[in-house]
């Protein structure tokens, strides 16, 4: 501190605008400032976009279908959508880590005490965090998925496979992928708030996204097979289904409800514990 100049003898008596009170709009603004002013956010979102575009390019280039133009239009559309949304599988892992860190980072650094002192009713801070993370992720996810389409479509067109972005069977799965990314991020935020630890939160979330489907598939029982579509990552894939060859067990809107169920369970647990526990 030797470099700083002598502090003034007394605080300035400048008064603040009398209207300055605690509002939800203010809490939203605060959480937005917090999200954009840590490096993990920009890194995570950059990785989501890069992986998405990269995967779309790899998938499109690898696809080898002699006589693509002879395929039915619906199947052509399905190929393009699959190539464009392939990155979501990896992107979900990145936004899940981000979602956990948004809240566990506050616990590990002690920031949560500042947050809850400013918002002593606590729950508005959780809702604002969720809303800001959801909005940012949906926007980044849309950019990533539409961008991926713009990468994949020309490559596949060269192979005689065509699809239009403005076809409902294309744009809806692309945006559903973005929506899924945002829902996973908020789900992970809830898990992070429940466990209050970065390592624990990341392990638990990635476990549910990645390991649960593998473990379940190794159980040789019908109930295990029946349960598969209801896992969060499988339901996420179901949200983006584009009418491929295999008929899906859940309609996309049903898959969305399943993902929402996971998210609500996680947020409800987080809210309950946030309200009850000492910070």
């Amino acid at each position: 501190m030797s470099t700083t100049t002598a502090p003034p003898a007394a605080p300035s008596a400048a008064r603040l605008p009398t209207a300055s009170g605690l509002t939800f709009a203010g809490i939203l603004r605060s959480e937005w400032i917090k999200l954009r002013t840590v490096r993990s956010t920009s890194w995570s979102y950059a990785i989501v976009v890069v992986i998405s575009l990269g995967m779309a390019a790899i998938m499109s280039l690898a696809l080898d279908l002699p006589g693509g133009a002879d395929l039915p239009a619906a199947l052509q559309t399905s190929f393009v959508v699959q190539a464009s949304t392939f990155g979501v599988f990896f992107g979900q892992l990145v936004v899940a880590v981000l979602g956990v860190l948004v809240v566990s980072g506050e616990y590990s650094t002690g920031m949560i005490r500042s947050t809850l002192t400013a918002v002593p009713r606590r729950l508005p801070a959780l809702w604002a965090k969720a809303a800001v993370l959801f909005t940012a992720t949906v926007l980044v996810g849309s950019v990533a998925n539409v961008g991926s389409f713009l990468v994949a479509a020309p490559i596949l067109a060269g192979k005689g496979i065509h699809a239009s972005l403005f076809d409902g069977a294309v744009i809806i799965p692309l945006l559903a992928g973005a929506l899924y990314l945002a829902l996973v991020a908020v789900f992970a935020l809830g898990v992070g708030a429940i466990l209050r630890s970065s390592a624990g939160g990341i392990a638990a979330t990635l476990g549910m996204l990645l390991l649960l489907p593998i473990v379940l598939s190794m159980i040789p029982a019908t109930w295990a097979t029946d349960l598969m579509p209801y896992l969060i990552s499988n339901a996420g894939a179901g949200m983006m289904a584009s009418g491929g060859p295999a008929p899906a067990i859940l309609e996309p809107w049903q898959a969305l409800l399943v993902v929402l169920g996971w998210l609500l369970a996680s947020l409800a647990g987080a809210a309950l514990l946030l309200k009850r526990r000492d910070a």
């Binding site: 203010g26 603004r29 605060s30 959480e31 400032i33």
Partner: peptide, 17 residues
């Protein structure tokens, strides 16, 4: 991971400061 300025800005934003 946040700068002092941004920390204070975020704290103040809750109250419209």
């Amino acid at each position: 991971g946040r700068s002092a300025y941004n920390h204070l800005l975020a704290m103040g934003a809750t109250h419209g400061i």
